[in-house]
Design a protein around this nucleic acid. Structure first.
Lengths: 151, 151
DNA sequence: GTAGTTGCAAAGGGTTTGCAGAGGG
DNA sequence: CCCTCTGCAAACCCTTTGCAACTAC
């Protein structure tokens, strides 16, 4: 199932670039595979390091260009975890989720609450907006940092 | 009432810097006044332009340094409206609020929903987190862009 | 007076771009 | 074969920093 999922994500990307006359290359396939396999929130530099480990000839610019392509193909999302870095997570095969971010250690977990989702829709409608997306980040102390706080 | 509000904000800032041995200067007072008077979401450059209009001798670096001070004094908040720029809004005298942002025209309005606020707390607690802040941005089409969409 | 503050300009960090050569379709 | 893609390095943008002169306290 995992492999099947990865394959279809790759197909989505291939279709996306074929549609606009772009090309599938060794570098793009490699970056795509690594990015999709990695759960969590990668900075461009972290992704570049992972790619370099597999193929040291790939350039940083290619990683940046690929991040843009993946965003356009709706496979990647840019998130701001408040650490000053830009970070990306992959969307495909992921249910939508929000973030619970520890201000002390920076750890971020993904959460979802259907009740909140519904209220967001309702709130937007109340103001005459048609909602297409949202981002919710909750900041606080994670359980282990909370414990340390006490001593 | 407006004036009284502005005065107390300034006092808060003065106390904040006095506490740590900093000083109140002509430039800081000017930037603070302009920033507090301006509702909405200013980029550092926009703030710098407004300041320059009143006093062309003020440098860009001073504006950046002041933005940091105001954040530390809890008078300013950094927000990401997805246009690639960093933006700041003032907090004091503002109730907490979230954003409803139009993806077409970029217009952002401020909203709040008590029910959502409560559920955010609950969600964090469920995961063992102690919540200290959050940011919620809803993206979609504003009423007027929605209308244009139809034709 | 003595720190903290300022404007300037240079440095810094992250991201984008111009280019000549490589390589997909 | 044509046109896109690549790696490199330089350019770029926004933000921070080093410094000598200045100024609040």
């Amino acid at each position: 199932m995992k492999t099947a999922g990865a394959k279809s994500e790759r197909r989505i990307f291939e279709e996306h670039i074929a549609e606009r006359g772009f090309r599938m290359t060794r570098q793009r396939a490699l970056i795509l595979d690594i990015f999709l396999k990695k759960e969590g929130h990668l900075s461009p530099e972290e992704l570049y390091d992972l790619v370099k480990a597999k193929d040291p000839t790939v350039g940083r610019a290619t990683v940046y260009r690929m991040l843009r392509l993946m965003r356009e193909a709706d496979l990647a999302r840019k998130v701001d975890l408040g650490d000053g870095l830009s970070r990306y997570e992959h969307k495909y095969g992921h249910a939508h989720h929000d973030h619970l971010i520890c201000l002390r250690c920076g750890k971020a977990i993904e959460v979802v609450d259907e009740e909140i989702e519904a209220l967001q829709e309702k709130l937007a409608r109340k103001h005459g907006y048609k909602l297409t997306a949202h981002e919710m980040d909750l900041f606080g102390l994670c359980p282990s940092c909370k414990k340390k706080e006490r001593k």
